[in-house]
Amino acid sequence: MKNISIDSLKVSSTIKLADFPTLIDVATSEKKKEKELQKIREKLSKIQDMMYAHNKYSVLICLQGMDTAGKDSLIREVFKEFNARGVVVHSFKTPNTNELEHDFLWRHYLALPEKGKFSVFNRTHYENVLITRVHPEYIVNENIPGIDKVDDITPEFWENRFESINAFEKHVASNGVIILKFFLHLSKEEQRQRLLRRLEKEKHNWKFSPADLKERLLWEDYQNCYEEAINKTSKPHAPWLIIPADNKETARYLVAKSILEELEKYEFHYPELDQEIQDNIKMYHDKLASEK
């Protein structure tokens, strides 16, 4: 299997999304990719168990991408070996009435992972500089002072949002949250094919919405917003990785490998036993073993 450098996927300088491929050849079969993914899953599961016991760090995985980019199936396949107590998935929809009574980051703070656990944001706090930027009329619903209509939204407003997001991520990272952000980079043609499959296969019809076609007309607007958001918020403590997503199996493998390589940089360990317990382990064992 062709070795792909994870560093080549990380955004460490200003980028153009058009320069990144949506499909790469890893020179192997789908079956071999699944075997490699299984190996990584098992390693991640062991790390998560140790991280849970270590109880000092947590992990925030952020997934963004256009509709049909494969976020749901990626979550299912990458985290399937995890202990259920160790990972929580949050899918952020349109803010509800209660959420709109708070600032735009409030609901994301509430969903941050506890120490020793993973949180996966399926769509993230970046929706607040993506869909709201393509559809600025949504901002009016937030009841922000000074913004009563779309014309009140200035370029400075978006700059302030980027600054708030950067401050949010820096704060949580400094408190032990390991952050990895993945943009599933899908081509417009592959999205077309996936939408067609939703219509052609009856069991997938429920996934289709006419709104998908309306949003597809805004493809370039979304690409521009993603590009700017990635460039303004990819930091060493919270990097963006651009994942070629036209092949779902390859995307899953690359995301899993990226997470594994990042976590292997940390020295997680099981807590040391109290000396008295260590000194008496054999006695405790023998006492339990002798019970009938």
Rank of each mutant, 00 (worst) to 15 (best):
F183A: 05
H204C: 08
E249F: 00
F79Q: 07
S29K: 04
L213W: 12
K232P: 02
K248R: 11
A167L: 03
I6Q: 03
D19F: 03
A84H: 13
L105M: 14
S209D: 13
Y222N: 02
T132P: 08
L112H: 05
R41A: 01
M1T: 14
K170Q: 12
A69K: 00
W240Y: 08
S258I: 02
V255N: 04
A173H: 05
T28W: 01
H204R: 15
I15Y: 06
F182T: 04
I242P: 11
I4H: 08
E215Y: 04
L195F: 14
P210L: 01
K2L: 12
N128S: 15
D212R: 09
Y57L: 05
N205I: 02
W240E: 06
R133D: 07
E77N: 15
I6V: 15
S187G: 13
K33E: 04
K43I: 05
I179D: 00
A289C: 03
Y109G: 02
K117N: 11
I4W: 12
T97Y: 06
H269F: 11
D274T: 00
I131W: 03
F104V: 10
N224S: 12
H125F: 15
E30R: 15
H90C: 04
S234F: 12
T132G: 04
T14Y: 13
E36Y: 13
L180N: 09
T68N: 11
D286A: 06
A53I: 01
F157G: 09
S174T: 09
T28R: 00
H135N: 09
T154C: 01
F208A: 09
K71T: 01
D221P: 04
F208H: 08
I259S: 03
I243E: 00
V150Y: 01
G116M: 06
H171C: 08
R198P: 08
I277T: 09
Y226Q: 08
T233D: 06
A84K: 13
P145G: 11
Q193C: 03
S209E: 14
E81A: 08
A229I: 06
K203H: 14
K248W: 01
L195A: 10
Y52L: 07
K2S: 07
L105Y: 02
K170H: 13
K56I: 00
F157A: 11
R197Y: 07
P155F: 03
L273P: 01
V78W: 03
A245K: 00
N280L: 00
E42V: 12
F183I: 07
V255F: 05
E190V: 13
D72Q: 03
L260Y: 05
N247V: 15
H54F: 15
W158R: 03
L218S: 03
R198A: 14
K10N: 08
L37S: 07
S45C: 10
R198G: 14
V140A: 10
M1A: 15
N175G: 05
S174K: 15
E159Q: 15
K214G: 12
E202A: 14
F92V: 11
T124R: 07
N160S: 14
M66P: 02
P155I: 07
E156G: 03
V11I: 14
K235N: 11
T22V: 03
E159F: 00
E169S: 05
K214D: 15
L9Y: 06
K43W: 01
V88C: 04
Q38H: 09
K46R: 11
R107C: 08
Q278G: 04
Q38M: 08
D72P: 05
P21R: 04
Y126L: 06
V255E: 08
Y52I: 00
E114W: 02
H90P: 00
D25W: 09
T14G: 01
S290K: 14
